[in-house]
Amino acid sequence: MEADFMQRIIVGVTGASGTIYAIDLLKKLAAIPDVETHLVLSQWAKQNLALETTLTLTQVKKLATVTYHNNDLGAAIASGSFLNDGMVIVPASMKTVAGIASGYGDNLISRAADVALKEQRKLIIVPRETPLSVLHLENLTKLARLGVQIIPPIPSFYDHPTEIQDLVNHQTMKLLDALAIANHAAPRWQGNGVTQ
């Protein structure tokens, strides 16, 4: 994108467990003045928000610059002419992964991901499922071969986390790094057992 534009990041939240990862990413992006976020939550993501957090849907929507309904296939982010700096699907359900891998854009999250693929823009997927079946692995491998960055929420322990937020911060750091957004979301490995 041209330098005069703010960074535009699309965030898709699906019905897999792990809504906390999306919320943390949105909070950290909201704290950066030159980043504009475009948020889409699936219906099951909304259900998980109520199950897994104490935040309301209104509170989460306020963390984003723009929000869309997942059925709105006429939204700006459904078009390749909408310039952006990347899309993150966090967490990504295996249903969504399968849909993207097969080019089945039946909702806005899948369509925006399909646009990222066809326009060769950055697409990051945070798959949240275990154990992974061969079918799951094949779909993720297919997407990785197409240039999608797969960043599962796998915790690190070299920084001696003491609470859940420490683990979430590490994941958000990985996502911000992948988006080329400078951050200090979590301690970094410095070598020889030192973190900073």
Score class of each variant (00 low, 15 high):
I151F: 08
V60M: 04
E36W: 06
K46N: 13
T162N: 11
Q43R: 10
T130F: 08
A50L: 14
S102V: 12
S133P: 04
L137W: 07
V134Q: 13
G103R: 04
V97G: 01
D72P: 03
L57N: 08
K122R: 15
N139E: 03
D177L: 03
I124G: 06
H69T: 09
G15R: 03
D106N: 15
L51M: 10
E2W: 09
L176H: 07
I89L: 10
K95G: 10
N169M: 14
S102L: 14
D4P: 03
A30N: 03
Q165E: 14
N192L: 07
Q120Y: 08
L49Y: 03
Q149A: 14
A178S: 14
I100L: 08
L143E: 08
P91Q: 02
N70R: 01
G15M: 07
R111P: 06
E2I: 04
L41I: 10
G103M: 04
N169W: 13
L135F: 12
L55C: 03
M6K: 12
E163M: 06
Q43D: 08
E119P: 06
V115I: 15
K122F: 11
Q196W: 13
L39H: 00
M6D: 05
A185T: 01
A98E: 09
M1W: 10
Q43F: 04
I164M: 15
V90E: 09
L55W: 12
E2Y: 12
I23R: 04
V90C: 14
L26A: 06
G12Y: 05
T56M: 10
K95Y: 07
A144R: 13
I109V: 15
G105T: 06
I181C: 03
V134D: 08
A22E: 00
D159S: 14
P153L: 09
T14P: 02
R8P: 00
I20V: 10
R111H: 02
L26R: 05
T54M: 08
S110L: 06
V11P: 07
P153Y: 08
H136P: 06
Q59T: 03
A16Y: 15
K61F: 03
I150W: 07
G103K: 02
R111D: 02
A113F: 12
Y21E: 01
D106Q: 11
L51C: 05
V88Y: 01
N183D: 11
L108E: 00
P33Q: 15
P153G: 12
Y68P: 06
K174G: 00
S93E: 00
H136F: 10
I100K: 04
A22V: 00
R145A: 04
G18I: 02
R145S: 06
T172I: 13
G74Q: 12
E36I: 01
V60Q: 00
I20N: 02
Y68T: 01
